[in-house]
Nucleic acid binder design. Structure first.
Lengths: 196, 196
DNA sequence: ACAGGATGTCTAGCGTTGCTAGAATGCGGC
DNA sequence: GCCGCATTCTAGCAACGCTAGACATCCTGT
């Protein structure tokens, strides 16, 4: 491959990223409804068909934004967990809800809008796996069901995030809900399986 | 009011309901993307503008479907709870997840698609309140925080429902997740507040 | 019974959407 | 310098939610 060919490839990759960040910025300032192919093309200062030479369609662009979001989320959760070694679970939960409320558009792309991303399979992109592993890391390695714990914890947090974001539960009791959830889902205490 | 006027009013109410059920059926068989004003008008055998004489717009139609869905959900949950008096919480959770997986389109209208429904306020429609009260009823009346419990339980179930529906967590472990959740969130045991 | 008015319904069309075919442009290699 | 290929743009399609104005229908008052 020639040198100029490499440069063109770099430019192309750069523009690829430009489209993704432009879509994210536009969504975060004006909502995903405002992210049309025309407005997005105008933002990156190219015509519409250029978008389709980089992505299969609008959904694929949203998916790319979501994928990048999982990288953000994973590092966000990791930092929170590591900065509070004594109570990693609580710190992670708080960070998760913070991420969802502070970046609602990005969160929507990741969890609500239709996307082609493959979850929980062999072809799951690494950023998704990394984010999920942050949840798993909140439980003790000797807990054989920590993946299950992580799934339920994640689900509960997602439910709280999305229901409060859409106004279906009030924002006022958020802190108490978080406290309650952490209390109930932590595995810090030994099994103590009550026979009931 | 004249007799014929009453008849016209009845016809109108009948058609109102016809639009709602047509929208729901179309969504349940082909998904909400297929519910366009044109196709819906064709289904009810009227022209498009008729829809707008009954509803403010497409979102309002979705909202009407959602509102009717809350009636369905409330009775569904109540029956499940009453048919298993010994373990109402578990029965309700199972029924909730069953509702979400068996009627995904209706569930989407209720919880995911944009809607004008007012939740958790003084003007909350009775069906919504009734459905939520089913959650509250799973906890003991002397539990001062049963509303909080209900909110978190609902959120967790919603999270599980939506994440598994969109393939973000596998369907395989659903039963175990449900068991785990019920175990952790039940208030059957007395306070036993551990000081930690 | 019949004209006039109000009510209800439809046809036709506007602006916008995601997406694409074919023309026009510009670059690299000989 | 010129040809050939890749890239980019202009222009347009079908479908979307929604609405204005024409048309038809029914009720009412004389």
């Amino acid at each position: 491959m020639s040198a100029t060919g490499e440069r063109r490839e770099r430019d192309r990759a750069h523009r690829h990223q430009l489209i993704i960040t432009a879509a994210r910025d536009l969504a975060e300032t004006e909502g995903w409804d405002a992210v049309t192919t025309r407005r997005l093309a105008e933002r990156v200062e190219y015509s519409q068909p250029v978008l389709y030479s980089h992505f299969d369609g609008k959904d694929a662009i949203v998916g790319a934004v979501a994928l990048a979001g999982f990288d953000d989320l994973a590092t966000h959760l990791r930092h929170a967990r590591q900065s509070a070694p004594d109570r990693p679970l609580r710190a992670l939960c708080r960070a998760y809800l913070g991420f969802a409320t502070e970046r609602p558009a990005l969160y929507q792309a990741m969890f609500i809008l239709p996307t082609d991303l493959k979850f929980a399979s062999t072809e799951t992109p690494p950023p998704l796996r990394a984010a999920f592993d942050e949840f798993v890391s909140c439980f003790r390695p000797d807990n054989e069901r920590r993946e299950l714990f992580a799934e339920v914890l994640w689900s509960a947090l997602h439910g709280i995030a999305v229901l409060s974001d859409s106004g279906r539960i009030p924002l006022s009791g958020q802190e108490q809900r978080l406290d309650f959830l952490v209390d109930r889902l932590a595995d810090t205490t030994p099994p103590m399986q009550a026979p009931t």
